[in-house]
Simulated assay, not measured.
Amino acid sequence: MSTALHAAAHADVSSAFPLVRTAHPVSEIERAAVLAAPGFGQYFTDHMASAVWTPEAGWHDRGVSALKPFSLHPGAAVLHYAQEIFEGLKAYRHADGSVWLFRPEVNARRFARSARRMGLPPLPEEDFLASVEALVRADEAWVPVSTGEESLYLRPFMFAAEISLGMRPSRSVQYCAIASPAQPFFGSVMRGLTLWVSTSYTRAARGGTGAAKCGGNYGASLAAQADAQRHGCDQVLYLDGAGEEGCIEESGAMNLFLVTSGGELITPAALGTILEGVTRDTVLALASEFGLKAVERPVTFAELREGIAEGTVTEVFAAGTAAVLTPVSGIKGEGYELRVGDGTSGQRTAALRARVLDIQYGRAEDPYGWMRRVV
Protein backbone atom coordinates (compact mmCIF):
# COMPACT_ATOMS: atom_id res chain seq x y z
CA MET A 1 0.00 0.00 0.00
CA SER A 2 1.33 3.47 -0.88
CA THR A 3 2.08 5.97 1.87
CA ALA A 4 -0.91 8.14 0.92
CA LEU A 5 -3.32 5.20 0.79
CA HIS A 6 -1.92 3.80 4.05
CA ALA A 7 -2.66 7.09 5.82
CA ALA A 8 -6.09 7.44 4.23
CA ALA A 9 -7.07 3.91 5.20
CA HIS A 10 -6.94 4.86 8.88
CA ALA A 11 -8.38 8.39 8.70
CA ASP A 12 -11.98 7.37 9.35
CA VAL A 13 -10.96 5.06 12.18
CA SER A 14 -9.20 7.87 14.03
CA SER A 15 -12.27 10.12 13.68
CA ALA A 16 -14.01 7.80 16.16
CA PHE A 17 -12.10 9.82 18.76
CA PRO A 18 -13.07 13.42 17.86
CA LEU A 19 -10.65 16.14 18.92
CA VAL A 20 -11.49 19.12 21.11
CA ARG A 21 -8.27 21.10 21.26
CA THR A 22 -7.01 22.50 24.53
CA ALA A 23 -7.40 26.24 25.08
CA HIS A 24 -4.09 26.33 26.91
CA PRO A 25 -1.39 24.46 24.98
CA VAL A 26 2.22 24.51 26.09
CA SER A 27 4.02 27.32 24.28
CA GLU A 28 6.39 26.57 21.42
CA ILE A 29 9.32 27.85 23.50
CA GLU A 30 8.44 25.62 26.46
CA ARG A 31 7.86 22.61 24.21
CA ALA A 32 11.21 23.12 22.46
CA ALA A 33 12.95 23.21 25.85
CA VAL A 34 11.28 19.93 26.87
CA LEU A 35 12.11 18.22 23.57
CA ALA A 36 15.76 19.22 23.93
CA ALA A 37 16.06 17.03 27.04
CA PRO A 38 12.82 15.13 27.72
CA GLY A 39 14.20 12.33 29.90
CA PHE A 40 11.73 9.46 30.23
CA GLY A 41 8.17 9.90 31.48
CA GLN A 42 8.79 13.31 33.00
CA TYR A 43 6.80 15.59 30.66
CA PHE A 44 3.44 15.13 28.97
CA THR A 45 1.80 16.47 25.84
CA ASP A 46 -1.22 18.77 25.61
CA HIS A 47 -3.96 16.20 25.09
CA MET A 48 -5.24 12.79 26.14
CA ALA A 49 -7.59 10.26 24.55
CA SER A 50 -10.35 8.79 26.67
CA ALA A 51 -13.46 6.60 26.71
CA VAL A 52 -15.83 5.23 29.34
CA TRP A 53 -17.45 1.81 29.74
CA THR A 54 -20.62 0.83 31.59
CA PRO A 55 -22.65 -2.39 31.24
CA GLU A 56 -25.64 -0.44 29.93
CA ALA A 57 -23.89 1.65 27.27
CA GLY A 58 -20.71 -0.30 26.52
CA TRP A 59 -17.83 1.89 25.36
CA HIS A 60 -18.87 5.51 24.88
CA ASP A 61 -17.79 9.15 25.33
CA ARG A 62 -14.78 8.60 23.07
CA GLY A 63 -12.67 11.64 22.36
CA VAL A 64 -9.39 13.54 22.56
CA SER A 65 -9.34 16.56 24.82
CA ALA A 66 -7.06 18.64 27.04
CA LEU A 67 -4.78 16.71 29.38
CA LYS A 68 -6.28 17.07 32.85
CA PRO A 69 -6.32 15.29 36.21
CA PHE A 70 -8.89 12.64 37.08
CA SER A 71 -11.20 13.27 40.01
CA LEU A 72 -11.60 10.02 41.94
CA HIS A 73 -13.81 9.27 44.91
CA PRO A 74 -11.86 7.66 47.79
CA GLY A 75 -14.05 4.62 47.29
CA ALA A 76 -13.08 4.14 43.63
CA ALA A 77 -12.50 0.42 43.13
CA VAL A 78 -9.05 0.81 41.53
CA LEU A 79 -7.68 2.33 44.74
CA HIS A 80 -8.62 -0.76 46.72
CA TYR A 81 -8.38 -3.76 44.40
CA ALA A 82 -5.82 -2.64 41.77
CA GLN A 83 -8.11 -3.50 38.85
CA GLU A 84 -5.95 -1.76 36.25
CA ILE A 85 -3.93 -2.46 33.09
CA PHE A 86 -1.69 -0.48 30.75
CA GLU A 87 0.35 -0.62 27.56
CA GLY A 88 3.48 1.06 26.22
CA LEU A 89 4.36 1.88 22.62
CA LYS A 90 6.14 4.62 20.72
CA ALA A 91 5.64 7.02 17.83
CA TYR A 92 8.72 7.64 15.65
CA ARG A 93 9.47 10.61 13.39
CA HIS A 94 11.15 9.63 10.13
CA ALA A 95 13.61 11.76 8.19
CA ASP A 96 10.87 13.05 5.85
CA GLY A 97 8.86 14.36 8.82
CA SER A 98 6.25 11.61 8.78
CA VAL A 99 5.26 9.89 12.05
CA TRP A 100 4.78 6.15 12.47
CA LEU A 101 3.76 3.58 15.08
CA PHE A 102 5.49 0.21 15.44
CA ARG A 103 3.22 -2.85 15.54
CA PRO A 104 0.40 -1.14 17.50
CA GLU A 105 -1.98 -3.97 16.59
CA VAL A 106 0.06 -6.31 18.79
CA ASN A 107 -0.24 -3.88 21.71
CA ALA A 108 -4.00 -3.66 21.09
CA ARG A 109 -4.40 -7.43 21.25
CA ARG A 110 -2.28 -7.72 24.39
CA PHE A 111 -4.30 -4.89 26.00
CA ALA A 112 -7.45 -6.93 25.40
CA ARG A 113 -5.86 -10.08 26.88
CA SER A 114 -4.74 -8.15 29.95
CA ALA A 115 -8.26 -6.73 30.35
CA ARG A 116 -9.86 -10.16 30.30
CA ARG A 117 -7.38 -11.47 32.90
CA MET A 118 -8.12 -8.53 35.20
CA GLY A 119 -11.89 -8.74 34.85
CA LEU A 120 -12.09 -5.58 32.73
CA PRO A 121 -14.05 -5.11 29.49
CA PRO A 122 -11.72 -5.53 26.49
CA LEU A 123 -11.32 -2.36 24.44
CA PRO A 124 -11.94 -3.22 20.78
CA GLU A 125 -8.75 -3.23 18.72
CA GLU A 126 -10.13 -0.56 16.41
CA ASP A 127 -10.76 1.73 19.40
CA PHE A 128 -7.27 1.18 20.76
CA LEU A 129 -5.73 2.06 17.38
CA ALA A 130 -8.06 4.99 16.80
CA SER A 131 -7.31 6.49 20.21
CA VAL A 132 -3.52 6.38 19.94
CA GLU A 133 -3.57 7.60 16.33
CA ALA A 134 -5.88 10.49 17.20
CA LEU A 135 -3.68 11.43 20.16
CA VAL A 136 -0.51 11.39 18.06
CA ARG A 137 -2.17 13.52 15.38
CA ALA A 138 -3.35 16.03 17.98
CA ASP A 139 0.11 16.28 19.54
CA GLU A 140 2.23 15.68 16.43
CA ALA A 141 4.40 18.69 17.32
CA TRP A 142 5.56 16.78 20.40
CA VAL A 143 7.07 13.92 18.38
CA PRO A 144 10.83 14.61 18.55
CA VAL A 145 13.15 14.83 15.59
CA SER A 146 15.44 11.98 16.52
CA THR A 147 19.15 12.59 16.95
CA GLY A 148 19.68 9.68 19.33
CA GLU A 149 16.60 7.45 19.56
CA GLU A 150 14.15 10.08 20.81
CA SER A 151 10.47 9.18 20.38
CA LEU A 152 7.00 9.92 21.69
CA TYR A 153 6.11 7.31 24.30
CA LEU A 154 2.41 6.40 24.44
CA ARG A 155 0.76 5.03 27.56
CA PRO A 156 -2.78 3.67 27.10
CA PHE A 157 -4.33 2.48 30.37
CA MET A 158 -7.65 1.40 31.87
CA PHE A 159 -8.91 1.30 35.45
CA ALA A 160 -11.91 0.45 37.60
CA ALA A 161 -13.72 3.73 38.31
CA GLU A 162 -16.86 2.52 40.10
CA ILE A 163 -17.39 3.87 43.61
CA SER A 164 -17.74 0.58 45.44
CA LEU A 165 -15.92 -1.59 47.93
CA GLY A 166 -17.71 -4.67 46.63
CA MET A 167 -15.27 -7.41 45.73
CA ARG A 168 -16.29 -7.84 42.09
CA PRO A 169 -15.39 -6.47 38.65
CA SER A 170 -16.12 -2.77 38.37
CA ARG A 171 -19.29 -1.64 36.58
CA SER A 172 -17.66 1.61 35.52
CA VAL A 173 -14.33 1.66 33.68
CA GLN A 174 -12.20 4.55 32.49
CA TYR A 175 -9.87 4.25 29.49
CA CYS A 176 -7.21 6.84 28.75
CA ALA A 177 -4.10 7.29 26.60
CA ILE A 178 -1.44 9.89 27.36
CA ALA A 179 1.84 10.73 25.65
CA SER A 180 5.31 11.70 26.83
CA PRO A 181 8.37 12.64 24.73
CA ALA A 182 11.22 10.34 25.64
CA GLN A 183 14.94 9.78 25.35
CA PRO A 184 16.47 6.27 25.49
CA PHE A 185 15.54 4.56 28.76
CA PHE A 186 19.11 3.53 29.58
CA GLY A 187 20.78 6.49 27.88
CA SER A 188 22.32 6.69 24.44
CA VAL A 189 25.46 4.70 25.32
CA MET A 190 25.23 0.95 24.75
CA ARG A 191 26.57 0.07 28.17
CA GLY A 192 25.89 -3.36 29.55
CA LEU A 193 23.50 -3.94 32.43
CA THR A 194 24.35 -5.95 35.52
CA LEU A 195 21.55 -8.16 36.85
CA TRP A 196 20.98 -9.24 40.45
CA VAL A 197 19.61 -12.77 40.83
CA SER A 198 16.76 -12.47 43.28
CA THR A 199 16.27 -15.41 45.63
CA SER A 200 13.82 -13.46 47.82
CA TYR A 201 11.22 -12.43 45.25
CA THR A 202 9.45 -14.06 42.32
CA ARG A 203 7.63 -12.12 39.64
CA ALA A 204 4.61 -14.38 39.11
CA ALA A 205 3.21 -17.87 39.51
CA ARG A 206 1.31 -20.25 37.23
CA GLY A 207 -2.28 -19.09 37.02
CA GLY A 208 -1.37 -15.61 38.25
CA THR A 209 -1.15 -12.30 36.40
CA GLY A 210 2.35 -12.69 34.96
CA ALA A 211 1.17 -12.56 31.34
CA ALA A 212 -1.00 -9.48 31.96
CA LYS A 213 0.41 -5.97 31.80
CA CYS A 214 -1.16 -4.82 35.05
CA GLY A 215 0.13 -2.28 37.54
CA GLY A 216 0.21 -4.76 40.40
CA ASN A 217 2.99 -6.75 38.72
CA TYR A 218 5.15 -3.65 38.52
CA GLY A 219 4.31 -2.38 42.00
CA ALA A 220 5.35 -5.74 43.42
CA SER A 221 8.67 -5.51 41.55
CA LEU A 222 9.85 -2.29 43.21
CA ALA A 223 11.19 -3.95 46.37
CA ALA A 224 13.18 -6.41 44.24
CA GLN A 225 14.51 -3.56 42.10
CA ALA A 226 15.61 -1.65 45.21
CA ASP A 227 17.32 -4.83 46.43
CA ALA A 228 19.22 -5.10 43.13
CA GLN A 229 20.37 -1.49 43.39
CA ARG A 230 21.60 -2.06 46.96
CA HIS A 231 23.85 -4.76 45.51
CA GLY A 232 25.20 -2.40 42.84
CA CYS A 233 23.11 -3.84 39.99
CA ASP A 234 20.90 -2.18 37.38
CA GLN A 235 18.04 -4.65 37.20
CA VAL A 236 16.64 -7.85 38.71
CA LEU A 237 16.89 -11.32 37.21
CA TYR A 238 13.78 -13.22 38.29
CA LEU A 239 13.60 -16.98 38.63
CA ASP A 240 10.40 -19.02 38.78
CA GLY A 241 10.93 -20.19 42.35
CA ALA A 242 12.77 -19.58 45.57
CA GLY A 243 16.51 -20.19 45.67
CA GLU A 244 18.56 -20.71 42.51
CA GLU A 245 17.08 -24.03 41.45
CA GLY A 246 14.47 -22.63 39.10
CA CYS A 247 14.27 -21.32 35.55
CA ILE A 248 15.00 -17.76 34.49
CA GLU A 249 12.03 -15.58 33.61
CA GLU A 250 12.31 -11.80 33.12
CA SER A 251 14.64 -8.97 33.99
CA GLY A 252 12.63 -6.23 35.64
CA ALA A 253 10.27 -4.99 32.92
CA MET A 254 12.20 -6.66 30.09
CA ASN A 255 12.33 -10.05 28.40
CA LEU A 256 15.64 -11.93 28.36
CA PHE A 257 17.55 -13.50 25.46
CA LEU A 258 20.67 -15.69 25.29
CA VAL A 259 22.90 -16.10 22.25
CA THR A 260 24.85 -19.35 22.13
CA SER A 261 28.05 -20.40 20.42
CA GLY A 262 25.96 -22.95 18.53
CA GLY A 263 23.94 -20.21 16.81
CA GLU A 264 20.78 -20.35 18.91
CA LEU A 265 18.80 -17.35 20.14
CA ILE A 266 17.06 -18.62 23.26
CA THR A 267 14.36 -16.92 25.31
CA PRO A 268 12.25 -18.32 28.16
CA ALA A 269 9.01 -19.82 26.92
CA ALA A 270 5.87 -17.71 27.47
CA LEU A 271 4.01 -20.06 29.81
CA GLY A 272 1.75 -17.55 31.52
CA THR A 273 4.30 -16.23 34.00
CA ILE A 274 6.11 -13.75 31.76
CA LEU A 275 4.90 -10.94 29.54
CA GLU A 276 4.84 -11.72 25.83
CA GLY A 277 6.65 -8.57 24.76
CA VAL A 278 6.22 -6.88 21.39
CA THR A 279 9.99 -6.41 21.11
CA ARG A 280 10.44 -10.04 22.18
CA ASP A 281 8.26 -11.22 19.31
CA THR A 282 10.09 -8.86 16.93
CA VAL A 283 13.51 -10.23 17.88
CA LEU A 284 12.32 -13.81 17.41
CA ALA A 285 11.06 -12.92 13.93
CA LEU A 286 14.38 -11.28 12.99
CA ALA A 287 16.64 -14.07 14.29
CA SER A 288 17.00 -15.90 10.97
CA GLU A 289 18.26 -12.71 9.27
CA PHE A 290 21.37 -13.02 11.46
CA GLY A 291 21.91 -16.73 11.11
CA LEU A 292 20.33 -17.50 14.46
CA LYS A 293 17.81 -20.21 15.28
CA ALA A 294 15.03 -18.81 17.49
CA VAL A 295 14.22 -21.12 20.40
CA GLU A 296 11.55 -20.63 23.08
CA ARG A 297 12.04 -23.01 25.99
CA PRO A 298 12.61 -23.14 29.74
CA VAL A 299 16.17 -22.23 30.76
CA THR A 300 17.34 -23.18 34.23
CA PHE A 301 19.55 -20.76 36.09
CA ALA A 302 22.11 -23.55 36.44
CA GLU A 303 22.20 -23.88 32.64
CA LEU A 304 22.68 -20.12 32.24
CA ARG A 305 25.43 -19.97 34.85
CA GLU A 306 27.26 -22.95 33.36
CA GLY A 307 26.89 -21.59 29.82
CA ILE A 308 28.41 -18.23 30.78
CA ALA A 309 31.28 -19.90 32.64
CA GLU A 310 32.06 -22.29 29.77
CA GLY A 311 31.57 -19.71 27.01
CA THR A 312 28.68 -21.50 25.32
CA VAL A 313 26.42 -18.57 26.22
CA THR A 314 28.24 -15.79 24.39
CA GLU A 315 25.74 -12.92 24.73
CA VAL A 316 22.81 -12.01 26.96
CA PHE A 317 20.47 -9.09 26.34
CA ALA A 318 17.18 -7.66 27.55
CA ALA A 319 14.39 -6.53 25.22
CA GLY A 320 11.44 -4.20 25.70
CA THR A 321 9.68 -1.16 24.25
CA ALA A 322 11.52 1.28 26.51
CA ALA A 323 14.84 -0.58 26.53
CA VAL A 324 14.78 -1.71 22.87
CA LEU A 325 17.68 -4.22 23.06
CA THR A 326 20.10 -3.64 25.91
CA PRO A 327 23.13 -5.88 26.50
CA VAL A 328 23.67 -7.66 29.81
CA SER A 329 27.35 -7.59 30.77
CA GLY A 330 27.21 -9.27 34.16
CA ILE A 331 25.09 -11.32 36.56
CA LYS A 332 25.55 -11.20 40.32
CA GLY A 333 24.18 -13.18 43.24
CA GLU A 334 25.06 -13.98 46.82
CA GLY A 335 28.79 -14.74 46.78
CA TYR A 336 29.41 -14.77 43.03
CA GLU A 337 29.68 -12.54 39.98
CA LEU A 338 29.60 -13.67 36.35
CA ARG A 339 30.84 -11.70 33.37
CA VAL A 340 29.08 -12.34 30.06
CA GLY A 341 31.58 -12.65 27.21
CA ASP A 342 34.14 -9.87 27.44
CA GLY A 343 31.73 -7.60 29.32
CA THR A 344 30.76 -5.50 26.29
CA SER A 345 27.83 -5.58 23.88
CA GLY A 346 27.99 -8.65 21.67
CA GLN A 347 27.97 -8.44 17.88
CA ARG A 348 24.62 -10.21 17.47
CA THR A 349 23.01 -8.00 20.13
CA ALA A 350 24.29 -4.84 18.46
CA ALA A 351 23.22 -6.02 15.00
CA LEU A 352 19.72 -7.00 16.11
CA ARG A 353 19.31 -3.72 17.97
CA ALA A 354 20.38 -1.71 14.93
CA ARG A 355 17.98 -3.68 12.72
CA VAL A 356 15.00 -2.98 15.01
CA LEU A 357 15.82 0.72 15.26
CA ASP A 358 16.44 1.09 11.52
CA ILE A 359 12.95 -0.27 10.80
CA GLN A 360 11.33 1.86 13.51
CA TYR A 361 12.97 5.09 12.34
CA GLY A 362 12.49 4.39 8.62
CA ARG A 363 16.18 3.98 7.84
CA ALA A 364 15.54 0.54 6.36
CA GLU A 365 12.77 -1.16 4.42
CA ASP A 366 10.01 -2.79 6.46
CA PRO A 367 9.42 -6.14 4.75
CA TYR A 368 7.26 -7.34 7.65
CA GLY A 369 4.64 -4.57 7.44
CA TRP A 370 5.26 -3.58 11.06
CA MET A 371 5.14 0.20 10.67
CA ARG A 372 1.82 2.07 10.64
CA ARG A 373 1.81 5.67 9.39
CA VAL A 374 -0.11 8.22 11.47
CA VAL A 375 1.02 11.60 10.06
Score class of each variant (00 low, 15 high):
Gln235Val: 08
Thr321Arg: 03
Ile248Cys: 03
Asn217Cys: 10
Arg353Phe: 07
Ser329Met: 07
Val145Arg: 14
Leu258Ser: 06
Tyr43Thr: 07
Pro38Arg: 09
Gly148Ser: 12
Ala66Cys: 11
Trp142Arg: 03
Trp100Lys: 03
Ser221Phe: 00
Gly88Lys: 03
Ser329Gly: 15
Thr279Gly: 15
Ala32Gly: 07
Ala16Phe: 06
Ala211Phe: 05
Gly369Ile: 15
Thr267Asn: 04
Ala294His: 05
Leu325Arg: 09
Cys233Ile: 10
Val64Asp: 00
Glu365Asn: 12
Gly39Tyr: 02
Val356Gly: 01
Ala8Met: 10
His231Phe: 07
Ala177Cys: 14
Gly232Glu: 13
Leu79Ile: 02
His24Ala: 12
Met254Trp: 01
Ser2Ala: 13
Leu152Val: 04
Gly343Leu: 09
Phe17Asn: 00
Phe301Ser: 10
Leu120Ala: 09
Ile266Met: 11
Ala322Val: 09
Phe70Ala: 13
Ile248Gln: 01
Gly63Phe: 15
Gly41Ala: 10
Gly192His: 08
Cys233Val: 10
Leu275Pro: 00
Arg339Met: 10
Gly307Pro: 09
Arg297Val: 07
Thr300Ser: 15
Ala130Ser: 10
Leu101Ala: 05
Val173Phe: 08
Ala49Phe: 01
Thr194Trp: 00
Ala138Leu: 13
Val299Thr: 05
Leu258Trp: 01
Ala66Val: 11
Tyr43Met: 12
Ala294Glu: 03
Leu271Gln: 02
Phe290Pro: 02
Phe111Lys: 04
Glu87Gly: 00
Ala160Ile: 04
Thr147Pro: 09
Glu337Phe: 11
Ala141His: 11
Pro156Met: 14
Gly215Ala: 14
Val299His: 01
Gly262Met: 03
Pro327Cys: 05
Tyr368Glu: 06
Cys176Gly: 05
Pro156Thr: 10
Phe40Ile: 14
Glu84Gln: 13
Ser180Val: 11
Ile266Lys: 12
Arg297Asn: 10
Ala82Tyr: 02
Arg109Lys: 14
Tyr336Lys: 13
Val136Met: 03
Phe40Tyr: 12
Thr314Leu: 07
Glu140Trp: 05
Ala4Leu: 13
Leu129Ala: 06
Val328Thr: 15
Thr3Leu: 14
Gln42Glu: 12
Ser114Glu: 06
Ile163Pro: 05
Glu245His: 08
Met371Thr: 13
Gly346Glu: 07
